[in-house]
């Protein structure tokens, strides 16, 4: 039993790290642009497929796929921003309409993945040597440990970026007070495009990590990650990146522990219940600070 719990803890940490990244990119998007990216899971899964293609067609190992995904998704995000967002801002209720528009993006992206890769589940047959390592009394696959390491590196880099660099500070300022920052002479359009691109890059990288951590993925997996991203974002407080990181880890742990103690189906329901419960009883998230809505 203890081993099971320990296993749950370690895996919860690994999975939670990934959830944290999924959430943090979504929350950045919401925070800066006030758009609800319903297609976030598809962005993420597209990253997994990129890693898959890179490996199976070009022999690029997943570790190398991480920076490639970051660059490719950053560029794609930058372009997508200019196609989608400026026009959206003109509608009556941009926040709610963004939900609907990204609903469309999500359907289109899933359909595109389906056309390209068919409905079969894919795996990357890349193996690290050794295949697994001993952590205390349990064994964890090396791929998962590598993913955890990358997650930690990316999170720290992101935190440093947000809190120590000028563009990062501008982003946080934009989250807290979008009107004021415009007066301060920051080019809000460029900043928003950058935020979108950054979020897309993070999503792409997360996708590569998912290909490492989870046994398989298919074009429909996107929807699951969208829900997870919502749970994490709401739990962490809408638009709060630090909260999202924390909430991701917490939710990963909760989910993995739930699979230890509860039947599979119940574990899924737990996620939804956390989501609904948070919105009702603690709408500002676990940290209790809500960035200006």
């Amino acid at each position: 039993m203890e081993l099971l719990i320990l296993n749950g803890l370690v895996n919860g940490l690994i999975v939670g790290g990934i959830y944290a990244l999924v959430g943090v990119s979504l929350t950045l998007l919401y925070g800066v642009l006030r758009v609800v990216n319903f297609a976030h899971g598809e962005f993420v899964i597209a990253g997994s497929f990129l890693a898959f293609v890179l490996f199976s067609s070009f022999g690029v190992p997943p570790l190398l796929a991480v920076p490639i995904a970051a660059v490719v998704f950053f560029a794609a995000g930058w372009g997508l921003y200019y196609v989608l967002i400026p026009r959206l801002a003109r509608s009556d209720d941009p926040e709610l309409m963004s939900f609907l528009m990204f609903y469309g993006v999500s359907i289109a992206a899933a359909a595109l993945l389906l056309l390209l890769f068919e409905a079969d589940s894919r795996t990357i047959d890349y193996t690290f040597t050794p295949v697994s390592m001993q952590v205390g009394p349990i064994y964890v696959s090396t791929a998962r440990l590598v993913a955890l390491a990358i997650t930690i590196v990316v999170s720290i880099a992101l935190a440093l970026f947000l809190f120590k660099t000028l563009p990062g500070k501008a982003l946080r300022a934009a989250i807290m007070n979008p009107e004021a920052i415009q007066i301060m002479g920051v080019d809000i359009v460029r900043l928003s495009a950058f935020a979108f691109a950054l979020a897309a890059a993070l999503a792409g990288v997360t996708g590569v990590l998912i290909a490492l951590v989870f046994p398989a993925f298919n074009p429909f997996s996107g929807a699951e990650y969208t829900i997870i991203a919502f749970i994490v974002v709401v739990l962490g407080g809408l638009g709060n990146p630090v909260g999202a990181l924390l909430a991701g880890v917490l939710f990963g742990l909760a989910e993995q522990m739930a699979t230890v103690f509860l039947p599979q189906a119940m574990a899924q329901i737990v996620g939804f219940v956390i989501l609904v419960g948070t919105i009702f009883f603690r709408p500002s998230g676990i940290l209790g600070v809500r960035f200006k809505r």
Binding site: L84, L100, G104, S106, I107, A108, A109, A110, L112
Partner: peptide, 10 residues
Amino acid sequence: NLLILGLATI
């Protein structure tokens, strides 16, 4: 079909 439904929404 699905792709176009998505694009139509956007």
